[in-house]
């Protein structure tokens, strides 16, 4: 899956007609017996929920790309496709670079384990080696501001402390492409400022940011280009001002 490929057009992510269809049976057979009875009766009908209906778009290397749209428009599904959690039902996805996502930060944390044990577990979950985590352990702990509590089980942490620890692990390594889903609500003002600073330093070194947000002001401020999704379709794509204008006039009409 990893090989040397040149990227003459400076594209980070290319989506070509990406479709994602979730199968769901209206009354799904969850037992073998039920399944065979229904199969015999010819009563297995799978319905599909189309979350993404043919998305074609490019994200350019180094830019900050915003995704906007109402709830259920398919924004999160799109990020899951790019981070390879979901394989597209059809269409093609190409990614040039190492992707990291701030989806489910702190997923897999175990409450009984200490902060430091969880750092190693979560870091490995993100695909890093043990030696990498050992090398950057102090950096992670100081970013999370948890020096005094790192050996306590995280069930004793406040929710803010847990979130900080997750972020510190996720953000220690600069990815080529960073996917962010409504993220800046973590921790207090000071910590959020620290996160923003980190994002900026990533960008300066060439990281491409893809951001989902309902905060249109924020999107306008930090993104160069954007995409508006509606019920799995691309409604508008291009410079952030144009896309936001389209979206705002849509909101006003409804």
């Amino acid at each position: 899956m990893t090989e040397k490929v040149s990227d003459p057009d400076q594209i980070a992510v290319r989506l070509e007609g990406v479709v994602v269809r979730y199968p769901y049976e209206k009354n799904r057979a969850t037992s073998l017996k039920e399944y065979f009875i229904r199969r015999l009766k010819g009563d297995i009908r799978t319905s599909y929920l189309t979350a993404l209906d043919g998305i074609t778009a490019d994200v350019r290397t180094g830019e900050t790309f915003g995704i906007i749209g109402r709830n259920g428009a398919g924004k999160s599904t799109l990020l899951k496709v790019v981070s390879r959690i979901i394989h597209p039902t059809s269409g093609r996805l190409r990614v040039w670079g190492k992707v990291s996502s701030l989806l489910g930060v702190g997923a897999g944390f175990h409450p009984e384990l200490s902060g430091s044990e969880n750092v190693f577990l979560y870091s490995a979950l993100l695909g890093r080696t043990q030696s990498y985590t050992e090398e950057h352990f102090d950096e992670i702990v100081s970013f999370a501001e948890l020096e005094d509590f790192i050996e306590s089980p995280i069930r004793t942490y406040s929710s803010g402390m847990v979130a900080r620890l997750g972020f510190a692990v996720a953000m220690v390594k600069r990815p080529d492409i960073l996917l962010i889903d409504e993220v800046l609500g973590v921790g207090d003002e000071l910590f959020q400022g620290k996160c923003r600073k980190k994002f900026r330093s990533f960008q300066e070194k060439g990281t491409t940011l893809v951001i989902i947000s309902h905060g249109l002001g924020q999107i306008e401020q930090i993104c160069q280009r954007a995409m508006w999704l509606h019920q799995g379709d691309v409604m508008s794509l291009g410079d952030v001002s144009g896309v936001l204008a389209d979206y705002r006039s849509f909101i006003q009409e409804n």
Binding site: K4, L93, R94, W96
Partner: peptide, 25 residues
């Protein structure tokens, strides 16, 4: 910045690429 980009080109993913699932796994 150019050196960064060079290194990262080693990561390339294509969902349409024919693959042997067992070998990949």
């Amino acid at each position: 910045m150019s050196t960064d980009i060079q290194i990262t080109q080693e990561y390339f993913y294509d969902s349409a690429k024919k693959r042997n699932r067992v070998v990949d796994e």
